[in-house]
Simulated assay, not measured.
Amino acid sequence: MAQIKVFYEPEAELLSVFWQSPRKNQIGTELGDGIILFKDGVSGEPIGVEVLSYRPGDARLDAVSVELGQSSQMQPAN
């Protein structure tokens, strides 16, 4: 089972979500609207996101959906 780690720092208004361990060589790319995507610096695989100026109830997270599972179980669209 996948573990997701969520860190919230209210004083800094910072929300971090990692589905893999943070890395020393990670690379952050701003996606816009104060959302940063973290990737492994070697493989380029996404490992987490950070939301700047976050407060509980933030509308930027209304459209987030998370699906966990193996890609081999997914059916192709017709």
Rank of each mutant, 00 (worst) to 15 (best):
Q73I: 04
V49S: 09
S53M: 09
F18N: 15
L15C: 01
T29D: 15
I35G: 00
E13Q: 07
Q20M: 14
P10I: 05
L15I: 05
E13N: 00
E67M: 09
G41I: 04
T29M: 15
F18V: 11
S21Q: 10
D40F: 06
I35F: 06
V51A: 00
I35R: 02
G44V: 01
T29H: 08
R23Q: 07
Y8A: 02
P76C: 07
W19Y: 08
E11Q: 13
P46Q: 08
G69C: 14
D62G: 12
A63Q: 07
R60Y: 03
Y8N: 01
N25E: 12
V42Q: 10
V17W: 00
G57D: 05
E50I: 09
R60G: 02
G57V: 08
P56I: 05
I27Q: 07
G48Y: 01
L15H: 00
G34R: 01
P10K: 02
V64C: 08
L37P: 08
Q3Y: 06
G57C: 11
L52C: 04
E9V: 05
V66S: 14
I35P: 02
Q20L: 13
R23P: 03
M74R: 12
Q70T: 02
Q26G: 07
S21H: 10
V42L: 15
E67H: 11
K5A: 08
P46W: 00
V49M: 14
